[in-house]
């Protein structure tokens, strides 16, 4: 009962947030509310036992997406223009789509029903066989990196594509370094000290998340985002130039590509042992040792690409900046 109540409460809160986003015209609050939406979703995801997903949603939806959207606002506009066209047609289309979906729920297995097809076909093997076939405790990591490891290679490629795309779209318009650190906030003593204190633990935490993904929630994707967050904080406080001196754009671009190559390359290694693509069992003395090593390597590749994409995307957006004064926010 308590579970149901928490679910309903969170869902209602999400609905309230979504409606509020719909009605507001100040883009700053729209973006912040969208961060809230992601964060509350993450809470709900934890409640639904999807800890890995919640972790990612919090890091991406509430973290990276919000930062990118705020950067965009700084470069574009603060307010939404008043409506100039009729919204009757969209409303009807959306309403009918929703009705169709509700109709579709009528034959759905009930929420939480353990006898639903999703729990009785395909998935049981992951739960029962992960221990013997892969040999790691986190089933999500096992499915992600091994059983459906090819999807994850695709996913890494998707984020790589986005990284390349942002470079293609924005890199050409990055302003020349002026030598002035106008966007930095390093004249704030408190910020400066807090950042310096924070960055170490954040990087350490990223490494923990990276290499502990086999055992608990985490993995390359989450680690990559956290790793990038440390850099973005640094860049926010000490300025883009300082961050670029620490990690130059070209190095980021190399890591970006190297991560995908690493993932794809591990699969190619399987060929040389006469195995199918991405069959890690050949990589170690025993099948589980091979799986373990393979998962470690591909997760590392994912972490590299993800962190590099996040950093390079941030560089590209921040590089556009006309200086934002403190008082404008």
């Amino acid at each position: 009962m308590i579970d149901t109540t928490i679910n309903f409460a969170l869902l209602l809160f999400l609905a309230a947030t979504a409606f509020s986003i719909l009605r507001r015209t100040t883009l700053f609050s729209v973006v912040m509310l969208s961060g809230v939406f992601s964060f509350v979703s993450a809470l709900l995801l934890v409640h639904l036992d999807a800890v890995d997903v919640a972790f990612t949603e919090a890091a991406v939806g509430a973290g990276i997406s919000t930062v990118l959207m705020l950067s965009t606002l700084a470069l574009t506009a603060r307010h939404e223009a008043p409506a100039s066209r009729s919204r009757a047609l969209p409303l009807i289309v959306v309403f009918l789509t929703g009705l169709a979906l509700i109709y579709g729920t009528l034959d759905m297995p009930h929420f939480g029903d353990p006898s639903a097809p999703v729990h009785t076909h395909v998935a049981p093997r992951y739960i029962t066989a992960t221990a013997t076939e892969i040999g790691i405790p986190n089933i999500v990591t096992a499915v992600l990196a091994s059983y459906r490891g090819f999807d994850t290679l695709g996913e890494t490629t998707v984020i790589f594509t986005a990284g390349i795309g942002v470079l293609l779209l924005l890199a050409g318009t990055i302003r020349e370094p002026t030598g002035l650190r106008i966007t930095a906030m390093d004249h704030h003593l408190v910020l400066r000290v807090v950042t310096k204190v924070l960055i170490g633990p954040i990087l350490l935490f990223a490494l923990y998340v990276q290499f502990h993904g086999d055992y608990g929630p985490g993995g390359g994707f989450q680690a990559g985002v956290i790793f990038a967050a440390a850099f973005i904080i640094y860049a926010l406080v000490f300025g883009l130039e300082a961050a670029r001196r620490a990690v130059p754009g070209r190095a980021v671009r190399w890591i970006l590509a190297a991560g995908v190559l690493m993932y794809g390359g591990v699969g190619v290694v399987s060929f040389f042992f006469g195995k199918n693509y991405l069959d890690y069992s050949a990589l170690g003395a025993t099948a589980t040792a091979g799986q373990h090593l393979g998962i470690l390597l591909v997760e590392f590749g994912v972490g590299m690409t993800v962190s590099a994409v996040m950093v390079s995307t941030y560089y590209a957006f921040a590089g556009q900046n006309r200086p934002i004064g403190d008082e404008e926010w």
Partner: peptide, 19 residues
């Protein structure tokens, strides 16, 4: 665990599209 894996992938696709 399977929906979790699928959605991890979908989140990444989502943030890629957003960027």
């Amino acid at each position: 665990p399977l929906p979790h894996v699928l959605i991890l992938t979908a989140i990444v696709v989502g943030v890629a599209t957003t960027a």
